[in-house]
Design a protein around this nucleic acid. Structure first.
Lengths: 256, 256
DNA sequence: AAGTGGTCTAGACCACTAC
DNA sequence: TAGTGGTCTAGACCACTTA
């Protein structure tokens, strides 16, 4: 007889939580791949030694977290949100007429440098830490609109190269996930007005001293681990930043 | 014998969904008030003629939507988020050091005018509609930081006066709720850069032509009914706008 | 000790999908 | 028709709160 989950770890952790972790472990181990169906509920409930109801509660939560997708009558599948769309919700610049577009990225610079004090604070790094810093110019509808200056820890992103960044086929955050197993699940952005310096004036095709929107973003993974620090400068003559707030549906788990 | 829910409406709607609506109806009818406990699960399941499991699924969703709050061993309570704090989450300007403050408001102007085409579009008004337009200057930490220009329909806010606005003891949205029964539950904001005109230069104590952050907001009630149109101009030399995004925890039930 | 919500079971029947 | 997830039942026992 195979030991049940609760027999393996008789702690105060609820059974469905243990099942959830077991499923996540199986996913991490590559037992089921993106887009594939996982075994039917009946089978999984037997495998983990729990009732259907408990198994379903575990799966429910994984579905809520966009890790699995259910299709009635077909099965439950590993979400394929990685490729592109999933992370696109973090991109919040649209044309003033409301038209959305997928940005074209052009890598401008890539450096391996000592982290400034500000970057160390945002990324919770200790003095002496080094980071990869790279600059992207983004175009929307063929217009240069945004310049991103991005910093990530060289420990967390060990081995990151200029070529990897240039050749990535997908969203930057999707790239983080695929190449480094790092999941960006939340961002905190601050927005203010700035003026274009010489470099940005060239990249955005504006006058030096022209007013720009400046976004300062920390991207977080699970457990509020900071992953990326980013400063974006946006030419808002024809574009704007989207902010939305809603009272219902979902707390703000990380506290405003 | 009291008829069960499913007997009353034998449509394709799941039972737990019907239970959820029945609970919402009871809340709307004032049967249980803010902060009060609702009856225990056992009792409710009998009242609605469903099993505990089904009743729990309905309550689960209401808890997810922040309408109810559960406390193990104590009971389930109607969430209390009205008076002031509740609406404060729509206020997203903070000092650059992260310090938050409650704004001091000074009413600068109050007019009853014909709605411009832009305002009519944002508030879904027909040609010829009139609106109340008023201007507020907001101070944070004693500094003039924000100027709001606000438009609301004179039909929806029938009888609104300058004195009411000046004397309100609470948040503007709390005032809408108390005086007009209008609930703001969501906002859609767009952010861009603008320059100070003569009026704003005086009110914000900046030079004419100085760059400002411009927020353009539509506030919505239930069923995505637009309630208020607002343009805010912010001096971001010492303040900034907060934007956050999170992947997990709750869909957006009202689909913004 | 009594009452609450939290977890869990071992099924049942239904709606949908694929073959 | 067979197999999937979607819904629902009628309980059980546990952890926590209040008195």
């Amino acid at each position: 007889m195979v030991p049940t989950l609760s027999q393996l770890s008789p702690t105060g952790v609820p059974l469905y939580e243990q099942v959830k972790r077991a499923v996540l472990a199986a996913l991490a181990a590559g037992e089921w791949k993106q887009g594939e169906a996982i075994p039917p509920e009946k089978l999984l409930s037997e495998r983990f030694g729990v009732s259907i109801g408990t198994l379903r509660k575990a799966i429910d939560e994984l579905v809520m977290e966009n890790i699995l997708v259910r299709h009635q009558g077909r099965g439950t599948f590993v979400a394929i949100h990685s490729q592109n769309q999933h992370f696109f919700k973090f991109f919040r610049i649209v044309r003033q007429d409301g038209e959305k577009a997928y940005p074209a990225t052009e890598l401008q610079r890539f450096r391996h440098i000592a982290a400034s004090e500000e970057v160390r604070e945002k990324l919770h790094l200790s003095p002496g830490s080094k980071v990869f810093e790279f600059v992207n110019a983004l175009s929307l509808h063929g217009e240069k609109v945004i310049v991103d200056t991005i910093c990530v820890s060289d420990v967390m992103f060990r081995g990151l190269t200029k070529d990897q960044l240039r050749d990535r086929p997908s969203t930057l955050y999707s790239f983080y996930q695929q190449m480094f197993g790092i999941n960006v699940i939340a961002t905190d952005e601050r927005v203010r007005v700035a003026v274009a310096d010489a470099d940005h004036a060239v990249l955005l095709n504006v006058d030096e001293g022209a007013p720009l929107l400046e976004l300062r973003r920390v991207a977080y993974s699970f457990h509020q681990t900071p992953v990326e620090w980013r400063v974006s400068k946006v030419d808002t003559r024809r574009y704007e930043y989207i902010g939305q707030e809603h009272m219902l549906g979902g707390q703000t788990p990380y506290g405003v």
